[in-house]
Computed example of a mutant assay.
Amino acid sequence: MARKTGARGANGERGRRPEADVDHVGAALPATARVADDVLAVDRHAETTWPGWAKGVVTALLVLHIAAVVSGALGVPPSSELERRVADAFTWYHGLMDQGYAYRYYAEPPPTPVVLANLSYGDGRPDESVRIPALEVPGPPMRRQRQLAVANALFASVQAERRRPGDERDEARLARSYARHLCQTHPGCSSVTLRLQQHLIPDPRIVLEALDRPGHDPFDLFDASLLTTPRWIGDFPCDGF
């Protein structure tokens, strides 16, 4: 009686068939395909991973920015001398990033500069008044913030020029740029007159007293008593642009 014995493969193990004897075409390919996929995955990962020096630079910049933001917020009075010294060390960064004036949600804001522009037309149309920032600015809140930035920049420019010697002043340097913009965006405009005023912060006690009165009306934040007298900056003919 013949005894059944298992066939020996090329590897010498009983009962196992060599890979070359696989009946189905491609049955031995999955292992090779997996290796190829792993290699491709490693290659793709290597292409999208930042080098070590780049990660270090980005990390350092993030630490710098976070430190500047935190120190700027903590350095606003009331604060300790240490907090103010640390905040002063980042003054250069606050100026570079233009982020040194809006901390603590304007808890102690200065008066708001307001630019008043009077546009004259040479075709018989009545004069037009433009206020920056406008009382109502359509669109996202960032548009009003941009208008505030324009007014602040113009006010700061005028104040800086007025501190210079009289023969070196040029108060209209930034004003000319804004007047040119108004001339170009208002067809037919013949000249622009610019003035500056400040919108004062109301005394909280006056606001509370007004609100405590029986049958009081809403407090008028744009009352004339809260606006300084407009100061003339200059007259700018549009044909000069």
Rank of each mutant, 00 (worst) to 15 (best):
A2D: 11
A2I: 02
A10S: 14
N11W: 13
E13T: 13
R14H: 11
R16H: 15
R17A: 12
V22H: 10
P30V: 02
A36T: 08
D37S: 06
V39T: 13
A41P: 02
V42I: 07
T48M: 14
T59P: 00
L61D: 14
I66Y: 05
A67C: 13
S80F: 07
E81W: 04
E83T: 14
A87R: 14
Y93A: 14
H94A: 08
H94W: 01
Q99E: 01
A102P: 00
Y105K: 01
A107N: 02
A107W: 03
V114T: 05
N118F: 00
G124R: 12
P126M: 09
P133L: 03
A134S: 10
G139E: 06
P141K: 03
R146Q: 12
R146P: 00
Q147W: 06
V158G: 04
Q159S: 13
R162Y: 13
R164D: 09
E168Y: 08
D170R: 12
E171F: 04
A172D: 07
A172P: 04
R173W: 08
L174C: 00
H181T: 13
Q184P: 01
G188K: 09
G188P: 09
C189W: 01
S190Y: 02
V192S: 02
I201Y: 02
P202K: 01
V207R: 10
L208I: 06
E209P: 04
E209S: 12
R213M: 08
F219G: 08
A224D: 15
S225L: 01
L226I: 06
L227A: 04
P230E: 05
W232R: 11
D239K: 04
G240N: 10
F241D: 12
